[in-house]
Design a protein around this nucleic acid. Structure first.
Lengths: 228, 228
DNA sequence: CAGTGGTCTAGACCACGTG
DNA sequence: ACGTGGTCTAGACCACTGA
């Protein structure tokens, strides 16, 4: 019944504040006691209080404003932490179908808002779970003959490329629902009309140039989603 | 061109490690130098190194294993951080339609796996953006006459109720696609057959009892999704 | 100005993993 | 026994807010 390991000091603070929020003692917008106050009232160091607050910020219970304090956040009904995982909680396997350097089509030029580049890298992958195909992905990458972009891409795809200068890649994902057409049906091995979830992903650099554009097609029944 | 505020020491470490991961110098599974090593090699305190690592852990670039070290994580293609927001990046507004204490239907008994409770709280909300209705939500909550559950629920809905004891609520969200039927069409003001995204959310307590069950219906075209 | 959070230090002790 | 990460301290200085 009792916990085997006693809770750490910061975890006790975390739980106490969560309870106050849950009980409505602290309500959205309310300020928390200051770090120094909590440090003294709990009899612990300020750094330990900050560790507790960091956990709560990370879990979006609160947020901080420099010079003002920490405040209880509004519960966010619009946010979900989603895992595209299968029922048995296994990861998907990605199998490369092809990597090509192709001429940009007019459609791609428009989608990637790039009218100067002539060639682009196209990566096609099939996505499997437990031997069964569950998805199909096409990704287009900016082609720069000087850089081993593909290498980089396969090393670590979710990277802020300009991290060294502190610049951020802005990613955008759109989810849509459609019925499988002949092409998708043949790849995913489903009948035409099967519900498909299409995920369209765009990555932009600091100056809003699209440096990556991809589309994934998943079987509508192929995944499980876990919410925060 | 230059940054106005110089980067903090921990941010420099964060960027350096991100760059090494991006360049493939550090690859998934690789260990990072130990905290003490980085502390010495960068000439900063261990706590500052830990702050940098905490940021990288938070952004899922790395993970730690006590007694062993920090390791570069595999890029996770199955994870998305989703915001159900509108194109203008505004939040949705939730407008309460009704709150009732109702008799459990057989269907609900099965969905909530509760065959002892007779009554349950039903909360219906419509979800608006910019004056336009974009969604509809029905949530069922465990009814306990002794507790002001509703109050609590409206204070803060994303709460770990048993936080004080360290117990966790397990939440589960399922996303499905369907065509609008007559009922949904009348509420969301769309024609029958309109693409609808249905989100089904279940919350379980420590002993896997379902304490909350809800369904939301969103217009398929009503949202934008941001991926991590 | 005083009060707040943000960064950083130089230690300490503990828990865990491996040889 | 030793190296790793996890927790914690008691200070320090800075940046920002608001009266």
């Amino acid at each position: 019944m009792a916990n085997k390991t006693p809770l750490s000091k910061y975890q006790i603070i975390v739980n106490a504040i969560k309870k106050d929020i849950g009980d409505g003692i602290l309500r959205p917008g309310d300020p928390l006691p200051s770090e120094n106050y909590m440090s003294q009232s709990y009899g612990i160091s300020r750094m330990t209080v900050r560790k507790a607050l960091a956990v709560l910020i990370n879990e979006t219970y609160i947020h901080s404003v420099q010079g003002k304090g920490h405040f209880v956040s509004k519960p966010d009904f619009t946010h979900f932490d989603i895992n595209f995982k299968t029922h048995d909680d296994q990861d998907f396997e990605h199998k490369l179908l092809s990597v090509d350097i192709i001429d940009m089509s007019d459609d791609l030029r428009i989608r990637m808002q790039n009218f100067t580049q002539k060639k682009i890298i196209e990566v096609k992958q099939r996505i499997f779970n437990n031997g069964e195909i569950v998805g199909y992905d096409i990704t287009y990458l900016h082609y720069n003959p000087k850089e081993p972009v593909l290498e980089k891409e396969f090393h670590y795809i979710n990277i802020d490329e300009n991290a060294a200068t502190g610049e951020k890649i802005k990613k955008h994902v759109t989810l849509a629902v459609l019925s499988s057409d002949e092409h998708i049906s043949s790849i995913l091995e489903v009948e035409i009309g099967f519900p498909i979830i299409q995920i369209e992903a765009t990555a932009r650099n600091e100056v809003s140039q699209i440096i990556r554009y991809g589309k994934s097609y998943f079987k509508g029944n192929a995944f499980k989603i876990r919410g925060q």
